[in-house]
Nucleic acid binder design. Structure first.
Lengths: 206, 206
DNA sequence: TAGATTGTTAATCGATTAACAATC
DNA sequence: TAGATTGTTAATCGATTAACAATC
């Protein structure tokens, strides 16, 4: 049943739908419609229905979607009806912030391993984790069967770290370093880069 | 001379081109081609040429693009041939990391003001800035004529903070809170949300 | 000059939207 | 039942790619 047939641009919107449905649930709502959901996030009702239709029929004519059911379904589709252990490589200020971030837990993720190559931080305790030596990345990640990682090292080391993560069996990398990284087919990569986003916006300013 | 006529999806790629050109420059290159640039970032040569053609003619047949010239031009197009002062609202771990981030400076941005509503941090020094009281946001931001802001408060307060930023004259908001925010026409908003990116990737994992 | 690469046009491909029968 | 809203089809719209004359 080919995942391949769903356009990636559709997949990319699902987490936003999930986030918004959870928000609606927190607000005490039990049902919503493609229209109601779309209004929240400035996406057309037609697009939401079309996107969801790639995966099944989750709504009812006349009444819309049961929020808790649609959340369950999206969590299953996105494979976050489980908790993914994550490795974090690099403990500067940003690594610290991520290690201490409380938001992962209820959304399918948790930090499990932290690495750095700086002897003065290796062995120290960050957010309850002992920082491990980067040199032992491969064995430790394999041992813990970690498939998801975040890179918060500087640009010059990001590709090298990514290569080692891939060797360790990591299949999804969230890269915070401001540089494009090459990964083999079958390994996912996404970027978080505030400067890219800021420059995108300043285009529209005078 | 309508900025309107350039598709936003094209604009969104320009910062990536700029980033990559700077990288090439650091590596000692003086020229590149649509092909060479494209290979770095997995974008087709045709697309790069098409994108750039919206703004002018920056290359030479036979030889490609002079990197320093194209950097200059892109910086001008993106309005980052100047330094934008930024306000940062919310000083948790993430706010701390952003306040201390060295990477903004050479790319057109600098943190100028930091706000929080927590009495125990107001007045304290973070990365050389005195944390100001959120209650004085409007007047202080106006006084400093700040047009760009980053939100690192929790989800429940993000919309309220955004509203106040807009009132203060801010025209571009980078929101780190995991919630969609409504802003008026003419105000730019972009999101940074690791969970969205992670869930996008886990779709492809088993 | 010959080779390389641009900027641009036209063709292709893909994504979004509008419309509506089905039905809760 | 009447009103609302789904899932889906077909039409529209927009983005990407291929191809090539121009020319450095």
């Amino acid at each position: 049943m080919g995942k391949r047939i769903v356009p990636d641009i559709v997949v990319a919107r699902l987490p936003l739908y999930l986030q918004t449905l959870k928000q609606l649930q927190r607000e005490g709502e039990y049902t919503t419609s493609s229209n109601g959901l779309g209004k929240r996030i400035d996406i057309s009702a037609a697009q939401i229905r079309k996107d969801l239709s790639h995966f099944g029929e989750f709504g009812k004519q006349g009444t819309g979607y049961a929020i808790s059911y649609l959340i369950e379904q999206l969590e299953e589709i996105l494979n976050v009806n489980q908790v993914w252990d994550m490795a974090l490589v690099g403990v500067g200020f940003l690594g610290h912030a991520i290690a201490n971030f409380r938001g992962f837990n209820s959304h399918g993720f948790q930090v499990k391993l932290i690495f750095d190559n700086n002897p003065t931080v290796i062995g120290s305790n960050i957010a309850g984790f002992i920082v491990q030596d980067s040199n032992k990345m491969e064995e430790i990640i394999q041992e813990h069967n970690v498939k998801v990682a975040m890179i918060t090292v500087d640009s010059d080391h990001a590709q090298e770290v990514a290569d080692r993560l891939v060797k360790s069996g990591v299949k999804a990398i969230l890269n915070y370093a401001p540089v494009t990284i090459k990964v083999p087919e079958g390994v996912q990569i996404q970027y978080i880069d505030p400067i890219i986003e800021l420059q995108h916006m300043t285009y529209y300013l005078d």
